[in-house]
Design a protein around this nucleic acid. Structure first.
Lengths: 132, 132
DNA sequence: ATATTACGTGTTATAATATAACATTTCATT
DNA sequence: AATGAAATGTTATATTATAACACGTAATAT
């Protein structure tokens, strides 16, 4: 049951607001540094807010970077799954939106007798701007 | 230039031997604990061995678990890319071997004007044994 | 053969990422 | 107002990973 924005708590809003205004993924301690002026003092406050935002699909974690980014898909169909294109040159990240990706990966899994639940896909390369 | 086994150094062999005999992915500090009796005393010795083993494709890192596992594909075509099926029940991990996966992901990337280089794919679910 | 170069090692310290534990506060709902 | 569920504030600590530097070893190029 994805939360609506109105249901966000103070700390969650602060963290989400910061991520809204940032293109690159941010580490938890970078987030902390950037919101200390708003009264957030401890890492745990950041991690707790991130946990909730991730649960509700508003934020995703990029595992290979230990960094967090806002979800731009208004109706992100995958709360637990993530699919990213990560530019190795400019560090920009975009989400793959193709909605049959989960299905494709599910089929791929079945080929090995594996029952798909969710996934993390992190593709590295050059984005449109950097790849020219 | 993938190293042959004969070229491995003492510490690399010790780490690789441990991973050879382990089904589940192991964290660096778990590895350390298990090879202290062989004279390895510091985390850095483990991380340095892992770095080299990863470079040569003998070991992969599972990013979402901060854990390391041996590569069973004798001719692992992807040194920098990884594709795993991870069982949420028994923690077993198997590599996806389908050799056109890189190509499929490359095509998928191109759809967004993104120039594919490599990827991490971590699929969670239930393995054959656990899924029944 | 020996000076050089490159790489691996051992060691200590520290950085970066993340969670445990517990007392307190907020806030919606009885 | 009383209750209960969840968020907060705070301190401490766990977990994962790297920096820095001195030393050793082995291949090789002059």
């Amino acid at each position: 049951m994805p939360l609506k924005n109105e249901n966000l708590t103070r700390n969650q809003k602060i963290v989400l607001d910061l991520l809204k205004n940032t293109k690159e993924p941010l580490g938890a301690y970078t987030i902390l540094t950037n919101i200390e002026k708003k009264g957030i003092k401890a890492p745990l406050q950041v991690y707790r807010a991130l946990d909730k935002l991730i649960e509700s699909g508003k934020v995703h974690k990029i595992e290979s970077k230990n960094a967090y980014i806002i979800c731009k898909n208004s109706n992100c169909n995958s709360l637990k799954s993530t699919s990213f294109l990560i530019c190795e040159k400019c560090d920009s990240v975009s989400e793959i939106k193709r909605n049959n990706l989960k299905q494709d990966l599910s089929i791929l899994s079945e080929e090995s007798g594996f029952n798909y639940a969710n996934h993390n896909l992190e593709i590295y390369g050059l984005c449109k701007s950097c790849g020219d």
